[in-house]
């Protein structure tokens, strides 16, 4: 069950962090104008100059990546409501664990709703997290009851941790070393695959230029390796707080 907790929290983070996009500005990327190196150095071919051009070529790749990263940030910025299907696949030893959920969220109301579709051990469960009420309500089909849990214990620390952490956005990769691994154009839409290097993991982020919303994030180096596939993204659908918090009629059990 720990993995479901982690997945849930990861999804909540996606929601919460994306809500922070509009409130926080992206730190500026370092742009080095190296297009005009000193003329005196061009006259001689020394190893330093060769290294200089090598670095310059790398920076030109980073500029392309920075443009993609900026487009991703702009795509996520200002989202008020969102729905998406999220498939999380993790490789744990010999096992391949897969969870498929339908995520609905309102940034304005700070409500997230997660409907579990797979695996069968979780199918039918609906989780609603309301920050304003500081509670999580989980509909459980097995006994047709709603388990109500306060976030006082867990969430206080979680939220304070969130506020302490200098997090711009879940989809903001501008702080990391980002490279464009490949870019393929089909029917006027360019599909990019970015490699994001963090301190302890390597991510491959896939995004297309028609939406600039990442549709796959793969942890290629790090624990646990796996992928997070986002599909059927609908931005700013008509989602009321009532819609998000509506659960099947059932007896409530407060934990």
């Amino acid at each position: 069950m720990k993995r479901y907790s982690l997945i849930y929290t990861a999804l909540i983070l996606v929601f919460v962090l994306s809500s922070l996009v509009s409130a926080m500005s992206l730190p500026g990327t370092i742009q080095l104008d190296l297009s005009q190196p000193p003329a005196a150095e061009e006259k001689e071919k020394d190893p330093v100059l060769e290294k200089y051009h090598e670095v310059m070529s790398e920076i030109s790749i980073s500029d392309e990546a920075a443009e993609v990263v900026e487009n991703i940030r702009k795509a996520v910025e200002g989202i008020k409501t969102i729905t998406m299907d999220v498939e999380v696949t993790e490789i744990r030893g010999q096992r391949l664990e897969r969870v498929l959920v339908h995520l609905l969220a309102s940034v304005e109301d700070v409500i997230a709703r997660i409907e579990f579709l797979e695996p069968s051990a979780m199918r039918g469960q609906i989780l609603v997290a309301e920050q304003e009420k500081m509670e999580v309500r989980i509909y459980q089909p097995i006994n047709n009851q709603i388990a109500v849990r306060g976030l006082e214990d867990a969430s206080k620390e979680v939220l304070s941790t969130l506020s302490i952490a200098d997090l711009n956005t879940f989809f903001d990769f501008s702080e990391y070393t980002v490279e464009v691994l490949d870019a393929t154009e089909t029917d006027g839409v360019t599909a990019y695959r970015l490699e994001v290097l963090t301190e302890d993991e390597v991510l491959h982020v896939s995004v297309k230029s028609d939406t600039w919303f990442p549709h796959e994030i793969a942890v290629v180096e790090g624990e646990p390796p796996g992928t997070l596939v986002i599909s059927n993204v609908v931005i700013d659908p008509d989602l009321s707080s009532e819609t998000l918090t509506n659960l099947p009629k059932a007896k409530e059990v407060r934990m």
Binding site: K2, L6, T9, L13, A154, V158, A165, N168, D200, E201
Partner: peptide, 16 residues
């Protein structure tokens, strides 16, 4: 880094 902190937070939440 922020992403490391995200992982840390995710783990923290899981533990909590």
């Amino acid at each position: 880094g922020s992403r490391s902190r995200i992982l840390l937070i995710i783990c923290t939440i899981g533990i909590l």
